[in-house]
Design a protein around this nucleic acid. Structure first.
Lengths: 164, 164
DNA sequence: GACTTTATGTCAGCCATGTTGACATATATC
DNA sequence: GATATATGTCAACATGGCTGACATAAAGTC
């Protein structure tokens, strides 16, 4: 076991490198999510609401099922936050035309406004990091993050991100 | 407002780029945290326990205050998960020598074993992403993640990651 | 040596957000 | 007409954040 950690062993360096990549992701995500929280608190909303606002904003007329697929939570969990957002007039739903069982979700103007406020602070942080790191680094950042996504879903997700 | 979204406006591209960077981070983190969850479930543990195992593993003899600083949670929240880990014999505490009020935390052999299991799956995912993306991309990934961390804490965190 | 600050713990209760299971309804599809 | 699908709802529970209040032991200060 001590052998594995010996600095003569290339595996040690490799493991350290991976650990660093993991911790960086933890810290970056921790701070990245902290910005919108204070804004959300003013509305009595949480991160779950933010995620819904974000993905509904990005995907107007998204169905409940699609949204569930993105968020990977149960419909009961989604229902709770969605009900709040509907009651607050931040999200609106319309019956699907092709399939009238579907409830297609979109942001209201008020919802879009809040979403923009939330995006703004998050984008500011990302913009700063991009600026400091440079275009080449940004390409690498994206490449690695893509590789971290589950392989079987990656294609679908990338399309949903880049399309539009 | 419509002007801002016109494709003639360079800000549009920029905003799209930022949005993509944000969504990639969301998806990557979502999947990145999913791996250890099934292992943890076997022990009746959750992500909060994982975070403690990770940072105690990385920082043997860490004090409670230091750990609180990393995790950014309250002592009451930490207390809950820490008590469980102590009772399960995964973490041990020893009185500080310089300051006997401190309880310095370390993993037990059993705790280290579990931590390795959890690390392993997470490292496997990161290793795959690194391999696919290449060394240059990895450097960019790290650079951008560093830039996402709160500026006032960045130096301290980077030292704690790279040191050792 | 008394006083204050610090590191830590504990009890109690609240809230947000995830889960499962069971059942209901409307619509689409074969 | 029977079955499958999209969605909703009720109820109960678990995890992991939070605040507030109070306790204790040790360290540091005058």
């Amino acid at each position: 076991m001590a052998d594995i950690k010996s600095s003569a062993n290339p595996l040690f360096l490799r493991e350290e490198e991976l650990r660093q990549g993991i911790e960086l992701l933890f810290y970056a995500y921790r701070d990245f999510t902290s910005d919108p929280d204070s804004i959300l608190a003013d509305y009595g909303l949480g991160r779950a609401h933010h995620r819904v606002l974000h993905f509904v904003g990005r995907n107007p007329k998204i169905s409940v099922a699609e949204l569930l697929g993105i968020l990977r939570i149960t419909k009961q969990s989604l229902s709770r936050v969605l009900t709040t957002l509907l009651e607050m007039g931040l999200v609106q739903q319309r019956q699907g035309t092709r399939d009238r069982r579907q409830r297609l979700l979109s942001l209201t103007e008020k919802g879009a406004e809040l979403e923009r406020r939330l995006s703004a602070v998050q984008q500011a942080r990302v913009a700063r990091a991009y600026r400091e790191a440079g275009a080449e680094a940004v390409a690498g950042y994206r490449k690695v993050l893509q590789g971290l996504i589950d392989e079987n879903e990656r294609e679908k997700i990338l399309q949903s991100i880049v399309r539009r």
